[in-house]
């Protein structure tokens, strides 16, 4: 078994035009930035992207939007990106808004082999339009289907060569659940380590979910809102 690839370029070469890809990250935090940049460089087209946000104009999934590589987006929030907005208003890109928790659970359901679920989220709103509803334990619920992908692009802090992954702080977000829900999961890690170097009790994504991984380079980790406080004078 060899899951380790040399580079992001080698990983994205597996992704054909027209693929549905999941992309981890929340805003710009915990993004598989090497994979996105490599996908941008390769010019893979006609992609459907499932990601909490489509990035900003020139970073994250926004890079792929700007270069017109994306046909359709599933996200919970698509603000903070003028070019996405322009393409959406012009009908050049399709998008479906999914409540954030429903998005996470639809992905989880896909990875766990669940054929859908009833949730109170979105009942009585446009999200429920055209969907089956049912009263469960006295609450109105909406039926939601699992959400699968061909590829999941995830970012972890450390990974061993068997594909076991650990994450760091809120850079975890959608990465572990997306890792379970695609036919092929491609993981980039800040530190690639030998088996035994990770505490087995601390592994968040077991290697069974990861097809290929590589050590990412030159992490930019761009900050969306640089909020700081001043040291108070005593």
């Amino acid at each position: 078994m060899n899951k380790v690839l040399r580079s992001a370029a080698e990983a994205v070469a597996l992704i054909p035009d027209g693929s549905t890809i999941m992309c981890g990250g929340f805003g710009l935090c915990g993004l598989p930035e090497n994979l996105i940049k490599a996908l941008h460089a390769r010019g893979t087209r006609n992609l459907t992207v499932i990601s909490n946000n489509p990035g900003v104009d020139d970073y994250g999934v926004g890079m792929l939007v700007k270069s017109k590589q994306v046909r359709k987006v599933f996200a919970s929030y698509v603000g903070e990106n003028k070019e996405f907005e322009r393409q959406a208003m012009a009908g050049e890109i399709e998008y479906t808004l999914v409540p954030q928790g429903t998005l996470a659970e639809r992905i989880r359901a896909a990875g766990a082999g669940i054929g859908g679920f009833f949730t109170p989220t979105g009942y009585g709103t446009i999200v429920a339009e055209g969907k089956e509803t049912r009263v469960i334990d006295g609450r109105n619920c909406v039926f939601e289907l699992p959400l699968h992908a061909d590829f999941a692009l995830v970012k972890a802090f450390k990974g061993d060569t068997r594909g076991n992954l650990v994450y760091r702080k809120t850079a975890r977000n959608f990465n572990p659940v997306m890792a379970t829900a695609a036919k092929i999961t491609l993981a980039e890690v800040e530190h690639l380590v030998e088996p035994g170097a990770l505490d087995p009790d601390a592994v968040v994504t077991p290697g069974i979910y990861v097809a290929h991984l590589f050590q990412g380079a030159a992490y930019e980790k761009r900050i969306e809102r640089r909020t700081v406080r001043q040291l108070q004078a005593v």
């Binding site: 929340f26 954030q100 659970e105 989880r108 850079a171 959608f174 572990p176 640089r226 909020t227």
Partner: peptide, 26 residues
Amino acid sequence: PDLVNAGKEIVTELSGTSYFSSADSF
């Protein structure tokens, strides 16, 4: 940069903080 809140603002952790996935969070 690995530590943001839901408004995408940089924050800090406290003693007793825990982290989990978006699926667990919801």
